[in-house]
Nucleic acid binder design. Sequence first.
DNA 1: TAGATTGTTAATCGATTAACAATC
DNA 2: TAGATTGTTAATCGATTAACAATC
Lengths: 216, 216
Amino acid sequence: MGKQYGKISMAVIRRLPKYHRYLRDLLDKDVNRISSKELSILTGFTASQIRQDLNCFGEFGQQGYGYNVEELFHEIRKIIGLTKTYNTIIVGYGNMGRAISKYTNFTKSGFTLRGIFDNDPAMIGKEAENITIQSVDELEAYLKNNKVDIAIISTPRDYAQEIATKLSNGGVSGIWNFAPVDLKVSSDISVENVHLSDSLYTLSYLLSQKDDKTEK
Amino acid sequence: MGKQYGKISMAVIRRLPKYHRYLRDLLDKDVNRISSKELSILTGFTASQIRQDLNCFGEFGQQGYGYNVEELFHEIRKIIGLTKTYNTIIVGYGNMGRAISKYTNFTKSGFTLRGIFDNDPAMIGKEAENITIQSVDELEAYLKNNKVDIAIISTPRDYAQEIATKLSNGGVSGIWNFAPVDLKVSSDISVENVHLSDSLYTLSYLLSQKDDKTEK
DNA sequence: TAGATTGTTAATCGATTAACAATC
DNA sequence: TAGATTGTTAATCGATTAACAATC
């Protein structure tokens, strides 16, 4: 399932979701065709870059016409892997874990929540999102019996690595990590980090620099 | 407050929080000195890159010795702007807004939550985090009377641009945006996006590519 | 002093942009 | 057909890596 492409740079890969977003919007507005030039105005990428990006995956356009929005949208969905479904679990059901689990967009997109794990005895056994919250102690057994594609780590910082190791040994394919640490896992596992404080700190830096400009 | 530096690339800026993280860990472990070589092992950046990065902001090291951990940590904090405090508000108090507001790390770091806004009548007037939730209708008046450094947008997608415009007109310095849209605001405002679905889609792409490798 | 490691310049690598022939 | 726009190659730009003199 899904085509295997040559070596695609992370820079290109991280632009794919943005193409997806704008193409979906265009589709919602019943736009039929779009040129790389028009798409460049929307996305802020150059037309040249857009054509280069798309050509990593195939020839989706037509000279003199541009791209068919619906067709390109579906191609991008296939490229990203959104035509598949993913068995997902959440480990760490605190504020962030809950917020993620209730983010309906994900389930709608084929990321199906199958399990919730926490270490708080007060929580274990309760229901959330139609799933019974399990103890993290049962995580390893669960992984033996169930194929998990994506595990979401939303535990406190100090538990994250330990959980990641268990997930890694348990054969999980990918980890979506919300804990503020860089996980060490075997190289056959993909880890995507959401480092919120790193993001906020970046904003902090930009603001500090701005202050100075206006002061001088 | 804060030094004004030359043109620093975003690539460098986005590495700063990672330096911050590892230096804090080293400080916690009472490590006194560290060389670019040792730091490269921890962070995964090359030693050369680390020295280049740090030299954008000053000469913090010493030949033959390396860097003093405590000193470098505090320099990085100053560079990022973590020695200041920021008046912060949250607009959109759904699952994500709540999760962010309870993320104690932020308040500890000097990001002080001053206001919460939502458009749900059932919520307005209630207390959360010792703050009375206000109606978004009062946002503009609030901005007239209060200096807001950072506004967090965690509204549904379709409200985000409208809110961003109000924040922009109201003189907010920076926006930390959790809504899955690219906001159009005046160029003197810094916007830092947390596009969760973009992040998940990136992971999805990586998994799709992996599947194929193992199948062939 | 000798060894270690920085700060910094030069070389390399990769990503972005420009240009244009092919063609719808 | 003429105009538009792609796919793709070549040129440029910027970021990373390597090298090394300076010096603690």
